[in-house]
């Protein structure tokens, strides 16, 4: 049911988002002038290296930045700007309409509370169910993420679950209120390949059945290809390329995207070629260079790259921030 009709208003629209952190060394520019939007039923992947600002983008939208962090710009969810909301207003959306699946399953569950307590509180808080109804609902959700014997397991503590099981509990917790927007930060990184597939399948089913929009943050380009329609590539806090999975994977326009794709290990490549990598490191976020942020690592860089490159857009909604790539 991929009903992302062009006329539909976006569910979440990020406009000119900047996220910075005050540190003793100066201000860290984690996200810079980011723009993107997602409609109901859409699946958007945000990919990029560690420190590219993927997680902080969604943290800013959910009001979960660390105390030294600050965000400017807009994050318009269903017509209201999340960045302008008080904590109490945010709490009406968080958990109910926007659910977040965090990346670290070992530390994201409260080790001092049983699973049932942690799951039930979401449903009771947002949907006003009583304890028994909430528990039944939670058990059903655990069954859906294939946790065996959920009636018994729900009474256990997080440390009695393996990492993969915990991640499934976190996924189940995110899905409890059937959110309109599910943000999944590396939901499968900690999991076995087989379970990765199951979780990814589960999220796909949720999108198809309840028209949930999904933002998937991932390093795993394989999982992205399996689940998502659109991909946003981030580098040093900026969007460098955005398009459909087909456009970005098969016709990458930004040299960074090409480097990222070539870094994926492949079985069909001759062994003596070894693993590809992009030489160098991402720029220091304290002192971002003017002009193209990828310039120092780019094999195709020229003097023209000292100017900030414009966002180019073709008629197929494929966008990239580079002076090159427009002619193909």
């Amino acid at each position: 049911m991929k009903s992302s009709t062009k006329s539909q208003a976006p569910l979440l629209e990020i406009k000119d988002l900047n996220v910075g952190f005050d540190t003793p060394e100066g201000e860290v520019h984690a996200v810079n002038n980011l723009n993107f939007s997602i409609k109901a039923g859409d699946t958007l992947a945000i990919v990029g290296e560690s420190g590219a600002g993927k997680t902080q983008t969604v943290m800013a939208a959910l009001g979960l930045l660390a105390e030294n962090g600050h965000a400017s710009g807009q994050a318009i969810f269903k017509g209201n700007d999340l960045l302008q909301m008080s904590a109490a207003e945010l709490n009406r959306h968080r958990g109910r309409e926007i659910a977040m699946i965090f990346q670290d399953p070992m530390t994201s569950l409260n080790p001092y509370l049983r699973i049932d307590k942690q799951m039930i509180e979401v449903v009771m808080h947002h949907q006003g169910l009583n304890k028994n109804q909430a528990r039944e609902h939670a058990v059903e959700m655990l069954r859906a993420v294939r946790i065996p014997d959920p009636e018994r397991r729900i009474r256990q503590y997080p440390h009695e679950f393996s990492g993969g099981m915990r991640q499934r509990v976190i996924v189940a917790m995110g899905l409890l209120c059937e959110p309109d927007l599910l943000i999944a930060d590396e939901p499968t990184t900690a999991l076995d390949v087989t379970v990765q597939g199951q979780i990814s399948h589960l999220m796909g089913a949720l999108r198809d059945n309840s028209n949930t929009a999904i933002i998937l943050i991932s390093h795993n380009l394989g999982v992205v290809a399996g689940l998502c329609e659109r991909v946003l590539v981030m580098y040093a806090g900026e969007a460098v390329e955005c398009g459909s999975v087909e456009q970005v994977y098969y016709d990458p326009r930004h040299p960074y995207t090409r480097g990222l794709l070539e870094s994926v290990p492949r079985l069909d490549r001759p062994e003596e070629q070894g693993l590809n990598s992009i030489p160098g490191n991402p720029p220091n976020l304290l002192t971002l260079p003017a002009g193209c942020k990828f310039r120092d690592r780019c094999p195709e860089a020229s003097d023209a790259c000292r100017e900030k490159p414009p966002m180019q857009l073709d008629d197929q909604r494929h966008a990239w921030r580079c002076i090159l790539g427009g002619d193909t």
Binding site: L64, P111, Y112
Partner: peptide, 25 residues
């Protein structure tokens, strides 16, 4: 800690987050 962030992401009020999730540890 991360589990407090999880609790906040659930939309629980700050006082519940503290009483239910943070106090014991």
């Amino acid at each position: 800690s991360n589990f407090i962030r999880t609790a906040r992401a659930k939309g629980l009020s700050e006082s519940i987050v503290i009483r239910r999730h943070a106090l014991r540890p």
